[in-house]
Design a protein around this nucleic acid. Structure first.
Length: 558
RNA sequence: GCGCCUGUAGCUCAGUCGGAUAGAGCAACCGCCUUCUAAGCGGUAGGCCGCAGGUUCGAUUCCUGCCAGGCGCGCCA
């Protein structure tokens, strides 16, 4: 935690000042004053460094002409010495141009905070359970899982950066008939028999069965069901380990690997059923035990215990949710594939049945489908047929950074198309290279600066020298980062960080083209060189921090 | 039939409480390396923001209806 001073950016100070001015004019305005206000960054540079349209918004409730309100704001801000110019434009926009020297504060903040620049306290202390991927341990992770592997991990990082206490959790579906089918498939593969029709058919089953036999030759001596279970259990361990290893290489980290099976240990499920029963939403019908989720808007009630006494999948869902709540998580985030969006209703209703607030305690993010193109054609995905693109294959094709970055830079509710050919080619058709290149470029400049004895650092900012339009743009963009991170966390949209970092890279490239950083030839090193090099190092820091939140590397050389 | 998501430039897509002339990358065309990484920069061209209404000072954004596409709607997991 840094002190109050450094947490308050220049735009926060000014927006607070504007709110204060409006409050002071309350008797005149005679309407509700908003509690917070975000300064906009106008696209058009002629409109200053920041702008606000609050005067237009307050015009109606106060019954006062917008330009009149703008005048009040401008009058109230005149006294500030960190503002160079104030202008009322159009129907009542207030355009603010910062004083040169006040812009330097951003650079100082970045250099002081270093790796933690951008981190904030918007979600301070909130215990969040972030569940993602949650694949069956019966095969490799495929493309749908991969989207969440990247986005879920990035969201975890972003939420943590906003101060939340995040636990990343992978729910292992290690129970039920699909596990037995898995065991039977492995068994038949090992024995050279035809696979069960409803079993798993991918080529990996052959490999896995060989691995099982090689490491545990004794399985061949077993027979019948005993042998099926042995294949199932050993295969499960190996397959899970394979998933874990792939995710580890992908840079996706989990705090908890939660076994579905464990929900039935030590009577935990019975406990959950009692909890729900005590809240009055459990009933029996046709020999089955149900949860009356229709009490809270679900389409139909859900079976927990089937009439034959076996557990329905929803039994596990219920127990798992209660486990999360009993472990102290305030917010449970579920990241589900589009083919599971029908879950929203029942999960929200489940929370309500437990006496929780479904709007607050449960959040469900639905990730739309990912298509993959190669050679101009869509690669069809079919797990049963075994022609799947796995996470591992994708990484082999395009590398971790390109795969992660591409998956993260789109909002998850957009269906997306990944073109392997483009991602494979190392050109800036792939935005990740554009961003990484900016970072590497800065590092090269700074290496050269050091070589020729140009110093840079927090005591050499010289904001009064950084007056070039490109410099001001760059400083302004750097100052946006904390706000972007906070917004990404609050809206659960890590792609905002990616888009920001692309924007920042672009601003830097333009700065680089127009503003020579290091002395030319035998030119004498000046304070401007140091100031620009310092600005470069601040930029590198922010790009690195942004990429780090995405789990993408920031190379020093390319 | 019901529900969720999507529809913005030739392509892939951004666009947070409604804001000023709707953006980026790629593809096309024209320029820029005798000195910091050209994986870069500048410029030109490219748009009925799916369609139709509504709300208002103002709508790509909010509301309603429609059209098109994707995905779901088990005592499966």
């Amino acid at each position: 935690m840094s002190g109050e001073q450094s947490n308050l950016s220049i735009q926060d100070e000014i927006s607070a000042a504007i709110l204060q001015v409006l409050h002071d004019a309350h008797s005149q305005l005679n309407c509700d004053i908003p509690t917070s206000l975000t300064l906009e960054r106008p696209k058009n540079r002629d409109h200053g460094d920041y702008a606000t349209s609050i005067a237009l918004a307050l015009s109606k409730p106060s019954g006062i002409a917008p330009r009149k309100i703008a005048e009040i704001i401008v009058a109230g801000l005149q006294v500030r010495n960190d503002i160079a110019a104030l202008e009322i434009a159009g129907p009542g926009f207030v355009n603010i141009t910062l004083d040169k020297s006040s812009q330097g504060g951003v650079i100082a903040n970045i250099l002081t905070a270093g790796k933690s620049f951008g981190y904030g306290n918007k979600l301070n202390g909130i215990a969040i359970n972030l569940e993602f991927i949650s694949a069956n341990p019966t095969g490799p992770l495929h493309l749908g899982h991969t989207r969440w592997a990247a986005v879920g991990d990035a969201l975890g990082r972003v939420l943590s950066a906003a101060g939340a206490k995040v636990t990343r959790e992978f729910y292992i579906n290690d129970r039920g008939v699909q596990m037995d089918k898995f065991g039977a498939s492995l068994q038949s593969a090992a024995l050279g028999e035809p696979r069960p029709e409803d079993g798993y058919h991918g080529a990996y089953i052959d490999d896995l069965s060989k691995e099982i036999v090689a490491s545990n030759p004794a399985v061949l001596k077993l027979s019948g069901e005993e042998q099926t279970f042995a294949f199932r259990d050993i295969g499960y361990k190996l397959q899970l380990a394979q998933q874990q290893s792939v995710l580890d290489k992908f840079g996706t980290r989990f705090d908890v690997w939660f076994s579905e099976k464990s929900l039935y240990d030590n009577g935990f499920f019975m406990h959950c059923q009692e909890v729900l029963k005590s809240k009055g939403h459990v009933f029996e019908d046709g020999g089955a035990i149900w949860l009356r989720t229709t009490d809270f808007g679900d389409d139909k009630d859900r079976v927990m215990v089937k009439s034959d006494g076996s557990m329905a999948y929803f039994a596990s869902d219920s127990a798992y949710y209660i486990s999360k709540r009993e472990r102290g998580f305030e917010i449970c985030i579920y990241m589900l594939g589009a083919d599971h969006h029908g879950y929203t209703g029942r999960l929200k209703a489940l929370a309500a049945c437990n006496g929780d607030d479904p709007e607050y305690n449960v959040e469900i993010l639905i990730g739309q489908m990912v298509k993959i193109m190669e050679g101009g054609e869509e690669v069809k995905l079919s797990k049963r047929a075994g022609t799947i693109i796995t996470l591992e294959e994708l990484v082999e094709k395009v590398g971790v950074d390109a795969a992660r970055y591409t998956l993260i830079r789109y909002p998850v509710d957009t269906p997306m198309v990944m073109d392997v050919d483009i991602l494979r080619s190392r050109t800036n058709e792939n935005p990740v290279y554009y961003v990484q290149y900016a970072h590497a470029r800065i590092c090269a400049v700074l290496r050269n600066a050091t070589d020729i004895g140009i110093k840079y650092g927090a005591d050499l900012i010289h904001p009064e020298l950084l007056v070039h339009e490109r410099e001001r743009e760059l400083i302004g963009a750097l100052g946006e980062f904390p706000r972007v991170v906070a917004g990404a966390a609050e809206l659960r949209e890590p792609h905002r960080v990616a888009r920001y970092v692309e924007e920042l890279a672009g601003v830097y490239h333009r700065f680089y083209a127009d503003c020579r950083v290091l002395p030319l030839g035998d030119e004498t090193p000046s304070e401007l060189h140091s100031a620009r090099a310092t600005l470069c190092s601040a930029t590198a820091q922010v790009i690195a921090n942004g990429l780090d939140l995405l789990g993408v590397s920031a190379p020093e050389k390319m």
